Simulated scan of single mutants.
Amino acid sequence: MTVRLVVRTLSELCITVGALIVLFVVYVLYWTGVQADSATAGQLDTLQQEWVGRPVETPGAPRAAPAPAPYTDGRGFAVMYVPRLGKDWEWPVLEGTKARTLKKGLGHYAGTARLGGTGNFAVAGHRRTHGDPFRDFPRLRRGDAVVLTDGTTWFTYRVDRSPYRTVPTDTAVIDPVPRKSGFDGPGRYLTLTTCDPEWGSSHRLVAWAHLDATQPVTAGRPQALDG
Rank of each mutant, 00 (worst) to 15 (best):
V82D: 12
E90N: 10
V93R: 02
T156W: 12
G105E: 10
T129R: 04
D132C: 00
G60Q: 04
F121A: 05
R128Q: 08
A113R: 02
S162Y: 09
R139Y: 12
T171Y: 07
G117H: 05
G96M: 03
H130P: 03
D170I: 11
R84Y: 14
G86P: 06
T171V: 14
D160P: 03
G131N: 02
W89N: 14
K98N: 14
G96Y: 01
G143F: 10
D150H: 04
K103M: 15
A99R: 12
P176M: 01
E57F: 04
E90T: 11
V79D: 00
D88H: 11
G105T: 12
P62T: 10
T72R: 02
F155S: 08
R114N: 14
R127N: 07
Y71E: 11
A64E: 10
R128L: 11
G107H: 11
E95H: 08
L102T: 09
G76P: 03
V167C: 05
R135C: 07
T149V: 14
T118I: 05
H126I: 12
P168A: 11
K104M: 11
P168S: 13
R141G: 15
M80P: 05
F155Q: 13
G86D: 09
H108C: 03
R100I: 01
T58G: 04
T118D: 15
P138W: 00
R165T: 15
R114D: 12
Y71V: 13
G125D: 02
G117F: 01
R135W: 06
P66Q: 04
T101L: 12
Y81V: 04
T166H: 02
H108G: 05
D73G: 11
L115T: 08
A67R: 01
L106D: 14
K98T: 13
P168Q: 07
D150K: 06
K98M: 09
T118M: 01
H130R: 02
D88L: 14
V79K: 00
G96C: 08
R139C: 00
P83L: 06
G182F: 05
T149S: 13
R75V: 06
F134C: 07
R161F: 09
D73M: 09
A99F: 10
F134I: 12
T166N: 12
A99E: 13
R165E: 15
V123G: 02
T129N: 00
R158G: 14
D160N: 12
R84I: 13
F155P: 12
R135A: 10
G86H: 11
R135P: 01
P168R: 07
R75F: 03
V93Q: 04
T169N: 11
T169E: 13
T72G: 00
M80L: 15
A61G: 04
G74W: 06
L102M: 14
M80G: 01
A78I: 09
T149A: 00
P168F: 10
R161N: 15
V159A: 15
F134H: 03
T129G: 00
A64V: 10
V177T: 06
G76K: 00
P176K: 05
G105V: 08
D73V: 08
H130D: 13
D136I: 01
T169L: 07
V167I: 07
W89T: 05
V167P: 05
D170R: 09
G119Y: 02
I174P: 00
K180I: 11
P178I: 06
P138H: 01
A110V: 12
F137G: 12
